[in-house]
Design a binder for these strands. Structure first.
Lengths: 302, 302
DNA sequence: CTAAAATTGCAATGTTCTTTGCAAGTTAGA
DNA sequence: TCTAACTTGCAAAGAACATTGCAATTTTAG
């Protein structure tokens, strides 16, 4: 029952867990055994986040009922409601400790979603092996063409990647319009090309098919996905794994976009002159076509 | 109940969660729905660590019993036993790299990009007024149609938003294909509709035009942008300001996607029954059209 | 094409966990 | 010292959850 030094890493980081919990205290504070329960919640966040009321009660030397009542005294419906909040705080303190983003007393779906994306990005930032992105960027830079296969909502990631890569001066195309377009694109692909398959959560049949077909034709294949699946891993030279867990039913695209962004940034660094020229040309065209909005009064250049 | 087996420092393997899980696989691997369950465990470690078997089953599109059986197939007594292990692994994977992350060289462009996105998201999380997202979500829920105008690379944000909102059961359409399509879309818009203009960095002329036109026709207009611009602010009922500064020349879409994600999450919470039914219907269609990849031996008919 | 084997969903069963009514015990104030 | 308000534990009621038997369906092997 030791485990007193619960989580050593928590030393420096401003502890949103603790602060938050203290803010919930009723004006009068908590007395008696309720205070003992609170003590346990504060000192053993890990157990508090996972354990049953029973377990916590035992730890505080208290009856189970007291745990429930303490939760209610803190303004929650019961122990499960309190625990859910504790969990969210605790996990945030683990992963995003240094950033310590705290939204006081919220809990709307949208803010939960944001917080989770923040966590995902923190994990990504920690885990991602940048050399993989470097490899992919160099492959794209050397390729005759790059084809990005992405379906469903992941199409957004593919489009963003393709768009910016083109802006950076490389022939990259996203195929997102379904099987017919995909088939046509595959017909034109061959040695010297690169294919990037993007798929989260559920793999689309045609994405896997395309990856395998490309591989067998000597195309360099890379994959961006949320969990290494044998199907893609065997077809791809490198697999980038990205957290995509969302708050609601939908997988989150945030971390995927961040990787796309990082990849393009890396790509732009491969040949700065080429990228610079390409951007300049694009800007000239935007001006020529009058695409951009001119601010009314501000006398601004460009 | 010592719980000493947790092993907080597993520094070497950043991804102990996934590796560990894969090692538990029976020789034959997992087939059919069991593979789908495994997929969810791998891709959604957080939910897997906390959720009930019921929740996981729903996520995998599977009966509850299958979750239990999968746990047993992996060599555990049942779901709780597996979950306990998953939790320990997941938590250590969260905290393990934290120390290492500090030292990690901030060298390559890609990692700088990631770090910057992380900062942006932290700022967003702190600054964003969630009531604005709530307002927009409710407007979308009540609208006859919602049209999202987004051009350039921001089209990705618009598409992601539209895609998921449709999945959630609402008639939302992204207009991203240029001025001609935009003009057509504007012709059909009117009172009772909602328009969301998405534009970062540089405003597209046509986006501003569309917003103003919509406004004058009694459409509720909202904007998602990176800096309050008078042109959009005057046309929009509410403006969501999102950090979009990128490492390279390109504006970052990461924070924008995160907002889109948060918005859809909020939207899905407006009428859970409607969203639930919509998702179920979509899943049925995916299955019917055979879009999803099937894991096991390739004995599948078309 | 047929039979055996395996897979999966449904629904009943049994378990664990949370909450609450009640009574005993404690504290504070008159 | 006595009483009223409050706290706490016990135990039963109630809810959520995991597991398993059974039947229907699909897959595999002959």
């Amino acid at each position: 029952m030791t485990e007193g030094a619960v989580v050593p890493e928590e030393l420096g980081s401003a502890d949103s867990y603790e602060d938050w919990l203290r803010e919930r205290l009723p004006v009068r504070g908590l007395r008696g055994k309720a205070a003992a329960v609170l003590e346990v919640l504060l000192s053993q966040p890990r157990r508090a986040s996972f354990g049953s009321a029973q377990e916590l009660a035992q730890l505080a030397g208290v009856n189970v009922a007291t745990v429930t009542r303490t939760a209610q005294a803190l303004g929650f419906a019961g122990w499960p409601a309190l625990q859910q909040e504790l969990r969210a705080r605790y996990l945030s303190s683990l992963s995003a400790g240094q950033v310590a983003a705290e939204h006081r007393g919220t809990g709307s779906p949208s803010s939960r979603s944001l917080r989770r994306d923040l966590d995902s990005l923190a994990v990504l930032n920690r885990r991602l092996d940048e050399s993989v992105l470097l490899t992919i960027a160099e492959a794209m830079a050397a390729a005759r063409h790059t084809v990005i296969v992405a379906d469903g909502s992941y199409a957004a990631v593919g489009l963003a990647l393709a768009h910016n890569a083109r802006l950076a001066g490389y022939p990259v195309r996203a195929v997102t319009a379904g099987d017919a377009e995909l088939a046509n694109a595959m017909a034109a692909i061959g040695e010297g090309d690169v294919l990037i398959a993007i798929s989260f959560w559920r793999l689309y049949q045609s994405t896997v098919l395309a990856a395998n077909e490309a591989r067998s034709r000597g195309v360099r294949v890379f994959a961006l996905t949320d969990a290494a699946s044998p199907a893609l891993a065997s077809a791809a030279e490198q697999v980038v794994i990205v957290p995509a867990e969302g708050e609601a039913f939908f997988p989150s695209l945030t971390a995927g976009i961040a990787v796309a962004q990082a990849l393009v940034t890396q790509l732009a660094a491969v040949d700065p002159a080429r990228t610079g020229a390409s951007i300049e040309a694009a800007e000239a065209m935007w001006a020529k076509f009058g695409l951009l909005h001119r601010r009314p009064t501000a006398g601004d250049p460009s």
